[in-house]
Design a protein around this nucleic acid. Structure first.
Lengths: 148, 148
DNA sequence: GTGCTTGCAAACAGTTTGCAGATAG
DNA sequence: CTATCTGCAAACTGTTTGCAAGCAC
């Protein structure tokens, strides 16, 4: 959907404009984020980053992720009882499909219409600024291996 | 929407049928849950329970909550970075409105239509078994006191 | 009496923070 | 040169677990 290379350059540019420094670790993390297709967790990113930088730490990953999050450049999918997943390719709000067995996360097809959002909030007096729609179920792989 | 007394009796009955014991603490917690209008957190329930049972513990609250959860009788709204909220009055799936300032949680008006859910999952091969829709924003109280 | 429940404390997972040394600009 | 970043360890929050004593049935 999004060209990884273009997104990488966009993020790099925005970070530089913010006065951030592009350390090798950070560059590698941006590469991982923009080329990831699987909504990785901080820990997964850490594992992948460690292949290139064996001494890197989880804290470094978290620090850059929260930096990007504050800039609105990464979507954070927090769950109550699992590690959060990150999406730096489509920082706009969109639905996700989450497999309850293997915990795979993929993007949903369409998005919620603004008037639907208003409908849900109607009568509440809420001033709605954002939303999140998650569908839970079984991914194709896990349906196939069900019961195993 | 739901009669607290009727819901209380329903939960009591289902727990008994499961072979669970109705201790005074548990009865009080069921009362709190069925009469709560505000989607309380485990900690809030604990505080309220402690007014009647000063020596009760958070663990007890969690244990009964997860028991109800396993029975499908309570909705758990987990967040990545705040305590989970519980709704034992409407264990069916329905949208919620969440205030980002005071963290108030109220029920949304309408529900997602099954064909909308299918639309989002279309082409993914996912077998969808559930969903969750949260709207974020400012509640009326917090809009009034904004900037304070 | 049996075994589920309580309540305490300790463990736990994911995330955040503090800080000294390293390094990008 | 200086401010940011790294990487380690320790702190932190919300939740879960182990276990001995208590209590519902």
């Amino acid at each position: 959907m999004v060209d990884p290379q273009a997104r990488f350059e966009e993020l790099t540019k925005k970070l530089r404009e913010r006065g951030c420094r592009m350390t090798p670790q950070r560059v590698a993390l941006l590469r991982l984020l923009t080329s990831a297709e699987d909504h990785p967790s901080a820990h997964q990113l850490y594992e992948r980053l460690r292949e290139q930088f064996p001494t890197t730490s989880l804290a470094t990953v978290y620090k850059t992720l929260s930096l990007l999050y504050d800039m609105g450049e990464v979507l954070e999918l927090g769950f109550g009882d699992h590690e959060a997943r990150y999406d730096a390719n489509r920082p706009d709000e969109h639905p996700h499909l989450i497999c309850l067995r293997c915990w795979k996360v993929i993007d949903g097809r369409s998005s919620l219409l603004p008037n639907q959002v208003q409908e849900v909030a109607e009568g509440s007096g809420f001033q709605v600024t954002g939303h999140r729609l998650d569908l839970y179920g079984l991914c194709p792989d896990c349906q196939a291996s069900e019961g195993a």
